[in-house]
């Protein structure tokens, strides 16, 4: 096991920020830590890395539960901070060199690792450019390179894609997958569920300081999957027999909306073929769309609120 949190409680004065958190991070995983703003994600990271002392519970890093935050263990951790924390006056290469030195890299190895880290984030051509002249996306990528330069076993990424363009976001997500394939374990926090769905091998959903659920994306969705929506676009909607569709078992609702027929069925009812057969008897089928639940629906089901803004629906 790379790291674990056992019964972690963190309070700021009387405000409970982390409420008995239990979390295990195993080697080679990408754990997507998902939650709305203020859920406690950043505090969890601060407790995991020793930046904050915990009020209760234990942190174990690399099997070390007695002195988890000693330098020997810190050397194996890379942190991509939520806010860009590079030195704007230094060049990309100097920034990476600074952190390489801090993590004890020397000589040829240091040169090689700096070059590799900058190339990995797509900044090989901008090594001599000052960070302050970089775009937001490039600064984000340099922020990541500085965390990778020492080849950490555990990379913690705290909302690394906030405020950047789609191209840089995709580059970062691809980089995360590549890192996993090289054996790096990643804890990735975000409030963008699309990112977690794209990269995470396990998802942990945090809300109001509590882990409300965890598992793979599929597991989480299956747990809340009660129904699916099938939208069929037809050429002659007036001729389609809605009653025949409604008569099928597990079909809960059939609605005609213009050229579209919306059929709500129980999850995994397996009726798609039969529904299409019925419709084809009366009309041509122009298009089909089956809407599956996503992590947003998981969060909505468990909390009654939307993930992106934490607002009620």
């Amino acid at each position: 096991m790379i790291a674990s949190l056992n019964g972690i409680v963190k309070r700021y004065d009387s405000k409970l920020v982390l409420d008995y958190i239990d979390l295990e991070i195993n080697e080679g995983q990408i754990i997507g830590l998902l939650g709305p703003n203020g859920a406690g994600k950043s505090t969890l990271i601060r407790c995991l890395t020793g930046m904050e002392t915990v009020n209760q519970g234990n942190v174990t890093l690399f099997g070390d539960g007695k002195k988890p935050f000693q330098n020997k263990n810190k050397e194996k951790i890379g942190l991509v901070t939520q806010e860009i924390s590079i030195f704007p006056e230094l060049t990309a290469k100097e920034n990476a060199n600074f952190f390489a030195g801090v993590y004890g890299l020397k000589g040829e190895e240091r040169k090689r690792r700096v070059a590799e880290a900058l190339a990995f984030v797509g900044l090989a051509e901008q090594t001599k450019g000052k960070a302050q002249n970089f775009s937001g996306g490039m600064q984000r990528r340099l922020n990541i390179a500085c965390s990778l330069v020492h080849n950490p076993k555990l990379l913690i990424m705290d909302e690394p894609t906030v405020g950047i363009d789609t191209q840089s976001r995709n580059h970062i997500l691809q980089a995360v997958k590549q890192l996993q394939s090289k054996g790096t374990t990643i804890l990735y926090t975000t409030h963008y569920m699309e990112e977690v769905e794209a990269i995470a091998s396990e998802v942990v959903i945090l809300d109001k300081g509590q882990i409300i659920t965890k598992g793979t994306v599929q597991e989480l969705i299956q747990n809340i999957q009660h129904e699916e929506k099938i939208k069929v676009e037809v050429s002659h909607p007036e001729e389609v027999s809605l009653a025949n569709i409604q008569a099928l078992p597990d079909v809960k609702q059939v609605i005609k909306d213009g050229n579209q027929i919306l059929i709500v069925t129980s999850a995994n009812s397996g009726h798609l073929d039969r529904i299409l057969t019925i419709i084809k008897e009366d009309s041509g089928v122009v298009g089909i769309n089956v809407e599956k639940p996503n992590l947003e629906d998981v969060f909505l089901t468990l909390t009654g609120r939307t993930l992106r803004d934490g607002g009620s629906v």
Binding site: T49, G50, N71, I77, L79, V102
Partner: peptide, 12 residues
Amino acid sequence: SARRQRILVAPM
């Protein structure tokens, strides 16, 4: 400032 986190996590 924001850089504090990175310095705190570093082994120095």
